[in-house]
Design a protein around this nucleic acid. Structure first.
Lengths: 191, 191
DNA sequence: GTCTATAATGGGATAGAC
DNA sequence: GTCTATCCCATTATAGAC
């Protein structure tokens, strides 16, 4: 694998576990086995690395949302899959979604990174809004209010549930915090 | 005011705006007008300061919950007041509740501080559980599931909504994310 | 593209005078 | 209780050889 990708992978793992301020070029260097000065050849400033990190993450997440939209038959199934993304991102309860990790440390981020972060939130909200509108039509989601509000509430719930679970390093807290949300979704049909 | 309290106040403001790693003794020193070496007289290590910070915060929060429990007539009113605490804590959209700020940067925290953080979460959840059980009796809260799950979901929603609002420095995002939650609460009576 | 070497800065922390 | 002075270390970043 090329060094650049190895660096991005290492940095993403580190950022999601310890936050943006919680990892240094020295950490990445010892992780992938080069000297820290060499990293500056690929990412001159740490802000450049952060930028690429969030870009790559946003792209990957958007692709996953597209796949879900294409693969799942109704709104409830799409929301279950969305919930699964956030649950999987927790790993063993030690890491967060990159965008939660970055939201938390937002004061050390540069403008372009912050912009990407808010774009990520906006896109997620837009995608969820469409799903909730679909839910109003197909009847697979209970207790609907306003689609945009439901979307923001869902995003907030996932991010908050990750925070709770990670604070205690206990995945079951994520499940408890999101249990009521899953209850609103009609069960998938048998084949 | 005594120096010790001034330091705690300054540190709390800083931590809620920039996180635990985001402020230094130098920041506090210039903020309250002493030299940074003097701070070590009051708090030998930064971890000591963090400990006192979270202790004080947890105590204050518990008192507020007691007041709410005593003052509000039913479950819906108590939850509205609880929601108000988190909304107020956001200020102009630039700061978080201390415990969200600490949850985010958890990897630089020491064991006693982490313990206090989880105790805080546990107490909040316990208080909310009782309120949701009251709601099941007085009928003032809609769409109830399991009281403990509803409690964790509520805590996660508040923390996540704060994160969303702070990322964009936009209080209205908190309101949108929590709008559906408020809708579940029956309106207060006229007098 | 990676290395050694070296800034330059800022962090937490301590000793000892006043 | 606060000060000056200092230490030690980690961090981001750069220069220039290979």
């Amino acid at each position: 694998m090329n060094t650049r990708t190895a660096l991005l992978d290492s940095a993403e793992r580190a950022a999601r576990q310890r936050g943006y301020d919680g990892f240094s070029y020295a950490d990445l260097a010892s992780d992938i086995g080069i000297r820290k000065a060499s990293i500056h050849h690929h990412f001159p400033k740490k802000a450049d690395l952060a930028r690429e990190l969030i870009d790559r993450y946003a792209t990957r997440f958007a692709d996953q949302l597209s796949e879900i939209a294409a693969a799942e038959p109704n709104a409830a199934a799409k929301l279950r899959a969305y919930h699964g993304l956030y649950r999987d991102a927790l790993g063993a309860g030690t890491q967060l979604c990159l965008c939660v990790a970055f939201s938390a440390g937002r004061d050390s981020l540069t403008e372009p990174v912050l912009d990407q972060l808010n774009t990520f939130h906006a896109r997620s909200t837009a995608w969820l809004s469409l799903v909730f509108e679909e839910g109003a039509v197909d009847g697979s989601v209970a207790n609907l209010t306003d689609a945009a509000d439901d979307a923001r509430a869902t995003l907030a719930l996932m991010e908050g549930a990750q925070l709770l679970a990670r604070a205690a390093v206990d995945l079951s807290l994520f499940d408890q915090a999101t249990a009521a949300f899953l209850c609103r979704l009609s069960p998938s049909q048998m084949h």
